[in-house]
Every structure is written in structure tokens, then in C-alpha cells.
């Protein structure tokens, strides 16, 4: 490439990059830096007080790990960080296997796009509305889930799930499965479409059963799709806020509290911006772990 052509190319790159970088700088990087600085700001200058306060807080509405008085009474609630981890531990595997299973079952089935579109609706619904729908789904009078258990004669699960600490968190997690499975399904459906059919045909010729084809051929080939689904779901779970805010506000007794809600409580109720910013930084750091792992995997597979 000649010198003139290179200069022209550089100018084009500059023209395209500048506006985006400027916007990212104005509305993403500077606020992030601002939050970072505020997280260290204390009454007497700068220090780690906010971080110490957030980590050692024991009030049930703001506890990160263990709320106070937990020794006297059986949990739940635990702290918000534990709730986030429970959320990830339950939500991620269900979403992965449900999305994959449905996508595989619907693969090459006539009219499957209609089913996929319906399932994708959960993704399209604003999460605030999703939170309200979860509230109704698990309502003792109106909800479909308690109704089902009433029909089965299980009285303990035929009441309003979100009113009780023992069932509130699981209700929200199951509700979020319903909202998020559409994403998993879409990713897996697209990945299945791109699979070379010859692999599956070769496995059939070799006498592999349907079970073996799925676990030994299809699933390993969907590794990249699985990584995307796992990472995106984990990040979604870690920053979960809206459906909790709308349906339970972290209650009862802090049983559904999550990290993002703690950040909000410090910000909007306690008017403590330093601790709110510290919570945001902690949340960002925790989210970076799967994020960095994901980027490394992508870069490795790219190279």
C-alpha cells in the first residue's frame, strides 16, 4: 500500500472512530472515573472508609455477606452477594440447558420459528413489566404457579411465593428463567443452524444414538455459543435490579436483596453517595471476573 493510500485510510479510520470515542469518553469513561473517585471520598478527605462500611454492613437491607441476627434465626436472608451467587448458580445452568434443549428439539421443525418468537418475548418485555408479571405469576390468588401446586395438593407452595423468605428468591430466579430463556434459545438456534450437517450424518453412519450425537457431537460443537450464553447470563444475574425492585424491593426481611439494590438503597434512601459508588465499584470488579475470562476465551479462539 502506498503512502497516500495509507494516509487516506488513516483519515477514514479517524473519521469513523472519533465520534464514537468522544461519546464513550463523555458518557461512559468520565462517569466511571467519577464513580471511582466518589467511592473513595469520605468526610475527612479520601480513604477506604466507604469500602469498609459496605463490606462490614450487617443491616438486612444492605448486608453484603451476612446480615445481623442471623445466628438467632435461620436464613434466608443471607447477604446480597450470596443472593447474587445463588442466582447465578441456579439461573445459569437452567437457562443453558433449557435454551439448548428447546433449540435442539425445535431444530429443523416446521413452524418452530413461531415457538421461538413467543419464547423470545420474555427478552422484549421491559424488565419492570417482567417484575410485575413475576409478582402476578407467584401470587397466591391470581398466580399460575401457586394454582398448580394447589391442584397438586401442596399447600406450602400454593401461597404467594414472594411474601415468604423461603420462597421469594427462588420465585424471582424462576421468573428470570422465563424472561431470559429466549436469549439462550436464540443463540443456540443460530449456532445449530451453522453446524455442518455432515458431522451429524457421519455420526449416524457410525451408528451413534441420538443421545450420543447430542452429547458427543452437537454439544461440544456449540462450545462458543455456550460460552456466550453462560457469560451473558452471569453478567445479567450479577447486575440484576429491575425485577427485584418492582416485585419485592429486596424483601421480605432482605431475603431477595441483591448487590445492585444495595447500591440503589445507599444512593436513593440513605443519600450516601460514597457507599453507593463503592458498591458500584465492587459490583463492577466482580462482574469483571467473568468478563475478562470471556474476552480471553474469545481472543484465544480468534488467534
Amino acid at each position: 500500500m502506498g503512502l497516500l493510500a495509507r494516509r487516506k485510510r488513516t483519515k477514514i479510520i479517524l473519521a469513523f472512530l472519533l465520534p464514537e470515542l468522544a461519546l464513550i469518553l463523555s458518557f461512559v469513561l468520565i462517569p466511571i472515573m467519577g464513580t471511582f473517585v466518589i467511592s473513595f471520598k469520605t468526610d475527612h478527605g479520601y480513604g477506604l472508609d466507604n469500602y469498609y462500611g459496605v463490606i462490614t454492613e450487617r443491616s438486612p437491607d444492605k448486608a453484603l455477606v451476612i446480615p445481623e441476627n442471623i445466628v438467632k434465626a435461620q436464613p434466608p436472608p443471607w447477604g446480597a452477594l450470596i443472593h447474587n451467587i445463588v442466582w447465578v448458580a441456579i439461573h445459569v445452568p437452567i437457562v443453558v440447558f433449557l435454551g439448548l434443549g428447546i433449540a435442539y428439539l425445535l431444530h429443523d421443525v416446521i413452524g418452530s420459528s413461531i415457538v421461538k418468537s413467543i419464547m423470545f418475548l420474555g427478552m422484549v418485555i421491559p424488565m419492570v413489566v417482567g417484575g410485575l408479571l413475576i409478582r402476578f405469576m407467584f401470587d397466591g390468588d391470581l398466580g399460575v404457579v401457586p394454582l398448580l401446586f394447589r391442584k397438586l395438593g401442596i399447600e406450602a407452595l400454593s401461597r404467594t411465593w414472594i411474601n415468604y423468605p423461603q420462597t421469594a428468591l427462588i420465585a424471582l430466579i424462576l421468573g428470570s428463567v422465563w424472561l431470559w430463556t429466549g436469549f439462550s434459545l436464540t443463540v443456540y438456534a443460530a449456532a445449530l443452524e451453522s453446524l455442518p450437517k455432515s458431522y451429524i450424518e457421519a455420526a449416524k453412519v457410525d451408528g451413534a444414538s441420538g443421545f450420543q450425537i447430542f452429547f458427543k457431537v452437537v454439544f461440544p460443537l456449540l462450545k462458543h455459543a455456550t460460552i456466550v450464553v453462560v457469560i451473558m447470563t452471569m453478567l445479567w444475574d450479577l447486575k440484576i435490579f429491575d425485577i427485584v425492585f418492582v416485585s419485592t424491593l429486596g424483601g421480605p426481611g432482605g431475603a431477595t436483596n441483591v448487590m445492585a439494590l444495595i447500591m440503589y438503597t445507599y444512593f436513593a434512601r440513605a443519600l450516601d453517595y460514597g457507599r453507593s459508588a463503592a458498591t458500584a465499584v465492587i459490583l463492577a470488579l466482580i462482574s469483571l471476573i467473568p468478563g475478562i475470562w470471556f474476552i480471553k476465551r474469545v481472543m484465544r479462539s480468534g488467534s
Binding site: K72, P165, R269, A270
Partner: peptide
């Protein structure tokens, strides 16, 4: 302040599990 929401939430817990009354009042 944030005590107000804590109060509301602890009372939700009371309605769900009245046996935790001591824990709630301590909190």
C-alpha cells in the same frame, strides 16, 4: 432515610414469619 424501608421490609418478614419477632425488633 433507609431505616424507613428497613422498617417496612422487616414488617413484611413479621407477617411472613411471626416467630421471628425478637430478631425483627432487635434489627
Amino acid at each position: 432515610g433507609d431505616w424507613q424501608t428497613l422498617f417496612w421490609d422487616q414488617l413484611k418478614l413479621l407477617w411472613a414469619d411471626p416467630d421471628k419477632v425478637d430478631q425483627i425488633l432487635d434489627t
